[in-house]
Amino acid sequence: MSQGSTAKPLLAGAGTRKSRTKEELIRFVLFLCAFLSILTTLSIIAILAWEAYSFFREVRVLDFLSGTRWTPLLEPRSFGVLPLVAGTLQIVIGASLIAIPVGLASAIYLAEFASAGVRRALKPVLEILAGIPTVVYGYFALTFVTPLIAAIFPQTQIFNAASASIVVGIMVLPMTASLCDDALRAVPESLRQGAFALGATQFEVTLRVVLPAALSGVMASFVLAASRAIGETMAVTLAAGATPKMTMNPLESIQTMTAYIVQVSLGDTPVGTVEYQTIFAVATLLFAITLSMNIIAHRVLARFREVYE
């Protein structure tokens, strides 16, 4: 630990210069990696935009956005995207009905009631659950949830929105819980102490101080969860079916935007045709919806963080 043996002169000629070149090289490589990932994202957006543009030269935007019949592969062809939007909406609503209450309740338990030990054990579990491949959920929907629903409602179709909604709800549940938990824990401890010192019970502190204080963060978590449910692909492709339909009956087969993209990508629709370009139009719409939801959620979260910093 003596000073003399380890201290080096500041200007140590060649050795330092060599390590500096090395550092610059590393910096350049890292920059390339960052640049590459931005570049790929930008090219994806560019391709989306270009193909969507070609599509909209054939089909009017208004017809696409307001049409209620989606039969791009069958005669007479019709390019009204609303049935796909409705199908997606149905999944999102169904999934939210599960993920929002259960996710919020789990978060409240984790953030406000669980002991430090329980929390330390459970929080990573949430993150692991969030990483389960979604195809597993699709399989789970087909082989377990659908038969269960069919046992209760015999008119249930093999492919149906309810089953897909339920598994998508379960799928986004860990993420919802984890994000809500973060929002609740961002509420300063001093507020809880202040409330307890006024003779509040744990429930009163949670429901009447912590939750209102965390509300914008909690809402943002819900939006992010919904956005994730909108983009969900595998489970809805497997379980919800391929029938673009304007229906609110969850026991019927529907088709979501994502499932439609999968269907056409895997099918033998010739590349370059309008039929093929539909997937880019649908993808652009999907992208626009999820992007704006994510931007809104992040804005809200950022503002929320500012309040408590």
Partner: peptide, 12 residues
């Protein structure tokens, strides 16, 4: 009752 070192009004 108790008053704390740092003012901690509720965000209400």
């Amino acid at each position: 009752g108790m008053v704390f070192q740092k003012p901690n009004p509720f965000p209400k």
